[in-house]
Amino acid sequence: MCVATSGEVLKVENGIAEVDFQGNIVRAAAGLTEVSPGDYVLVHAGVIIQKVTKQDNDIMTQLLAEMEDAARG
């Protein structure tokens, strides 16, 4: 469950972050994570629930390949 989208932190002040979602600025509480301007974060119901770690584009392929390797043993 849970609609959550990721946006960019513009600034953080007193535990409230201004997060930009493609031009929509939402004030989200930053009480559950350590964030700084420039971070990409996942926001759910007005609260930042996690920082988004940039992954390489082929992370999915990599993980699946690892799984196949493990399966082949």
């Binding site: 979602f21 493609q22 031009g23 929509n24 939402v26």
Partner: peptide
């Protein structure tokens, strides 16, 4: 911006 709004 509308897409972002909808996603939110």
């Amino acid at each position: 911006a509308v897409q972002g709004f909808c996603n939110l």
